[in-house]
């Protein structure tokens, strides 16, 4: 038995004759349990697939996070700074975005997005309209280049609609993402390999803008979100090329 391959053994076990269940079980189930169904639930909830509500800014922030890790810039330091001036800008950390205000203390890893008519000053360095930056070791680092051609800035507090192509929704759907919620509440993912060229990484993005996983092309095609919200949540997998630009995505899955 042991020298057979597992599939042959599984097939053999699958064809093994098993006695039928006892009549007592059948009677107990049919006669007693089944009629006591709870009142039928309300109307069936439709499966949410489209429209996707991840705004372009979310993906920008998400991919920005990926870039930081992918290029080894994120070292988990704990420097923090105070915004000296902030107009028409937002700060985002841990997937949560809030309007930036003068006097706001921001920690390492915080992403600053300046709106089209805004500005932000940190440690005497001023970001202009449309700029993106991240706080690292208590200093401001501009990161526009990482996002050029992939996303666009948005006005903080707006709906996040983009004004430049490609909108992420327009990315070709070239991978299958499957998500499943475990008993622990974590959401596990598995996806198919991207078959295009020049792709270097995958990111799994939660609808609240958090990157929940980053994987390199050629590595494992699975991940888990162990901090998933308890409520139904949507995710999308984005494929990034060697310039960290999104080139493809999965359909949005809700779990």
């Amino acid at each position: 038995m042991t020298d057979q391959d597992p599939i042959t053994r599984l097939q053999a076990l699958g064809s093994a004759a098993v006695p039928p269940p006892s009549e007592e079980l059948v009677d107990a189930l049919v006669g007693a349990r089944l009629p006591h169904r709870a009142p039928a639930p309300g109307p069936r909830r439709p499966v949410i697939r489209f429209p996707v509500v991840l705004p372009a800014a979310a993906l920008a922030a998400a991919i920005l996070g990926f870039v930081l890790v992918a290029v080894g810039h994120h070292d988990g330091g704990n420097g923090s700074v105070v915004l000296q001036n902030a107009v028409d800008a937002s700060v985002e950390v841990g997937g949560h975005s809030t309007p930036a205000r003068a006097g706001t203390k921001v920690d390492d890893g915080t992403v600053i997005t300046v709106g089209p008519s805004g500005s932000v000053t940190v440690n005497g360095v001023t970001l202009g309209p449309g700029e993106l930056a991240v706080i690292r070791k208590g200093r401001l680092q501009r990161l526009r280049a990482a996002l050029e051609g992939s996303t666009t800035t948005t006005t903080p507090g707006s709906s996040g609609a983009s004004n430049a192509a490609p909108a992420w929704e327009q990315l070709p759907i070239a991978v299958d993402l499957e998500a499943r919620r475990a008993a622990s509440g974590a959401v596990t993912f598995v996806w198919t390999s991207y078959r295009g060229t020049n792709a270097t990484g995958y990111v799994v993005v939660r609808e609240d803008r958090t990157i929940v996983a980053r994987r390199r092309v050629g590595g494992v095609l699975e991940a888990a979100d162990r901090a998933a919200p308890g409520t139904r949540t949507r995710y999308v997998l984005v494929v990034l090329d060697s310039s960290r630009r999104p080139v493809a995505r999965s359909e949005v899955v809700a779990v």
């Binding site: 597992p6 993402l177 598995v190 996806w191």
Partner: peptide, 22 residues
């Protein structure tokens, strides 16, 4: 609740995982 392509991926991995366990 997955596509056949995804299932093929999962199944392939599952086979390898089972082999490893054996």
């Amino acid at each position: 609740g997955v596509s056949t392509a995804t299932f093929a991926v999962v199944l392939n991995r599952a086979k390898h995982a089972l082999e490893r366990e054996l």
